[in-house]
């Protein structure tokens, strides 16, 4: 169970606005997050990952406080190890597909499985610049999954995939999420694109 109660001031074109989220995410749940642009969806994911700190708030994961601004508790991202799929992928230009996964894990069998799931076996020796947008996005998802995260944060993870690939990948991911018991938060502009993957939703306005 992940319990969140955070408040963060955001800079907006018309001045400041406040991102306030009070929500519980049951273990293994898949939540789709949507809302207007600039509402703070990405910021919310980054707060959970530990990249950004809110002014006020508490985040408790399985009974362990990751953040408590009152008692100044802050677990750094390296210790949280929440898988993160960036909107712009944030792939490492110096690493091949295989090296991305090897950087994240030493589990060879798991790497092979991920390459199969992402249909990237034949591109294992390719660097990101030689991959299509869809392949890059799949690699970003695989890299985040490589650490077998208990919490996976995905920022518009299927935006560059064609409908057929998206549908196949979502089915495969559902199996992996179930296997790992991963709690997943997915930011999307198109709630219907998740093909019923999500079982709860959060609207950030």
């Amino acid at each position: 169970m992940i319990s969140v109660d955070i408040e963060k001031k955001l800079k907006a074109y018309h001045g400041q606005q406040v991102l306030k989220v009070v929500q519980k995410f049951p273990a293994g749940s898949i939540t789709q997050i949507y809302g207007p642009s600039g509402a703070g969806k990405t910021t919310f994911l980054k707060i959970l990952a530990g990249f950004i700190q809110p002014e006020k708030g508490i985040i408790i994961v399985d009974g362990i406080p990751w953040l408590d601004t009152g008692t100044k508790i802050f677990i750094p991202p390296q210790k949280r190890m929440a898988g993160f799929v960036f909107q712009n992928y944030a792939l490492f230009p110096n690493m091949t597909v295989q090296q991305h996964l090897e950087y994240a894990t030493n589990d060879i069998a798991w790497i092979e499985k991920l390459l199969f799931v992402g249909k990237l076996e034949t591109f294992a020796k390719h660097k990101p610049e030689y991959l299509s947008g869809g392949q890059q996005q799949r690699l970003a998802i695989l890299r985040a999954l490589a650490i077998k995260p208990k919490l996976l944060l995905m920022d518009e993870p299927f935006s560059a995939l064609d409908p057929e690939m998206k549908s196949v990948l979502i089915k495969e991911l559902k199996v992996i999420f179930d296997e790992l018991g991963t709690t997943v938060l997915i930011v999307t502009h198109h709630p219907h694109e998740l093909d019923g993957l999500a079982n709860q939703e959060l609207i950030i306005t």
Partner: peptide, 14 residues
Amino acid sequence: PIALSQASYSLGKT
């Protein structure tokens, strides 16, 4: 991009 460091941190890297 700062996201490169963040991606690495999220994988548990120092």
